[in-house]
Amino acid sequence: MNPTSSLTAPGTGVKGSGPGGKADADRPASGVTAAERLLSLVQRQGVLAVLLLVVVIASFAYPTFATLDNSRGVLVQASFLSIVALGMTLVIITGGIDLSVGSVFALGGVLAAWASQWGLLPALLVPLLVCGAIGTLNGLLIARAGMAPFIVTLASLLGARGLLLAFTDEGATTYLVPKGSAFAELGQGTVGGFGYPILVALALFGLGGLILQRTSFGQTLFAVGGSADAATLMGLPVARAKVTVYVLSGLLAGFAGALNAARLSSGVTIIGTGMELDAIAAVVIGGTLLVGGAGSVSGTLWGVLLLAVIQNLINQIGSLNSSYQSVVSGGFLILVVVAQRYVSRSRRTL
């Protein structure tokens, strides 16, 4: 058996054909037809076109939408979800899922607020250690014990939320971040009018893009998501890659929670509920396939911004409440999944 004949090409989700097959005969010298390149571009960057279209229409419809202050507010609100969604992107590319990120986000915020009384370093290290440990446990149970990601991370969702409630006396205790501290500045400070959370999120996405597209680890993630069995036959560290992405997902969710606590100056216990669904929606809307093997961090970023813009538009309208965001987000999600199936089916026939 030739392992390369069944592998999915990293970052594209395009199945390879055996040497000398009909698909090879019909392809140009580059190995990829113009139609395939177009379909791949639609899958990866279609959400950006939708985002730009919505922004242009909203700017004409609501004059306050395009103001600098409103744009800053949208970006700050999107920064926390984007960090969580970055970790989710890596997990989904490998064919997994992480339902625990919402609870881990809330837990990270409470732990950071509690530890902030001892300074900036403890406020960051404590949530990273605890949330990273949760991600490690998820990864080991999934990659080493062979358990289903849905079940493992669902249990972690409940466990992290339970730990949060126990730590805060069922939510009765709220830990405050000292005013004027370096940790508070991390969440509330600005550079050129843009908050630190925005800059941190952009830096993390830049790093994530480099890792995913320019390193052997990133290519391993695509191979694992395309076919774990084929990746194993190629000698790739499949189990280690799966453990790593869940660790990163836990770390990023905890870090986002810590940043949010710094911005709010407290560890809020009721946040994070349903955040895992928002993160999954942003990732899928951004073009990452739920079955794994294809995706990009840039698409996830556009997906997060699209959801944030929709929420802001609902606020601009005024007569609609925030629950309509879920309706619109669900509609976008269905449309994207249908489009992905159409694109995948079209690429298989080329």
Score class of each variant (00 low, 15 high):
S71V: 01
S71Y: 02
R72E: 10
G73C: 01
G73T: 06
G73P: 00
V74S: 02
L75K: 04
Q77V: 05
A78M: 10
S79H: 10
F80G: 01
L81G: 01
L81I: 03
S82Y: 02
L86S: 02
L86T: 02
L86V: 09
M88T: 13
M88D: 07
M88N: 07
M88S: 14
T89K: 10
L90A: 15
V91A: 06
V91F: 15
I93N: 09
T94M: 09
T94G: 08
T94C: 15
T94H: 09
I97F: 06
I97N: 13
D98V: 07
D98F: 12
S100L: 06
S100C: 07
S100W: 03
V101N: 10
G102L: 06
G102D: 11
V104M: 07
V104H: 08
F105Y: 15
F105R: 10
F105S: 09
A106E: 11
L107A: 04
G108I: 05
G108V: 04
G109T: 08
V110C: 11
V110W: 08
L111D: 05
L111W: 02
A113M: 03
A113R: 02
A113S: 13
A115F: 02
S116F: 01
G119F: 13
G119W: 13
G119P: 06
L121K: 02
A123Y: 12
A123R: 03
A123H: 05
L125D: 13
V126G: 00
P127L: 05
L128G: 02
L129F: 12
V130R: 05
C131I: 05
C131E: 12
G132I: 01
A133N: 03
A133S: 14
A133R: 06
I134Q: 03
I134W: 07
G135S: 03
G135N: 08
T136D: 08
L137F: 07
N138P: 00
N138E: 09
L140W: 10
L141V: 12
L141T: 01
I142V: 06
I142D: 01
A143Q: 10
G146E: 11
I151A: 13
V152F: 15
V152K: 05
L154R: 04
L154F: 15
L154A: 07
A155L: 09
L157P: 00
L157T: 05
G159H: 00
A160M: 06
A160K: 07
R161T: 03
R161M: 06
L163I: 13
A166H: 09
F167A: 08
T168N: 03
T168L: 02
T168P: 01
D169K: 10
G171D: 13
G171M: 10
T173E: 14
T173C: 00
T173G: 00
T174I: 15
Y175C: 01
Y175W: 09
L176F: 12
L176W: 05
P178D: 11
G180L: 03
F183C: 00
F183N: 02
A184V: 11
E185S: 08
E185P: 00
E185M: 05
L186H: 10
G187L: 07
Q188V: 00
G189D: 14
G189R: 09
G189L: 10
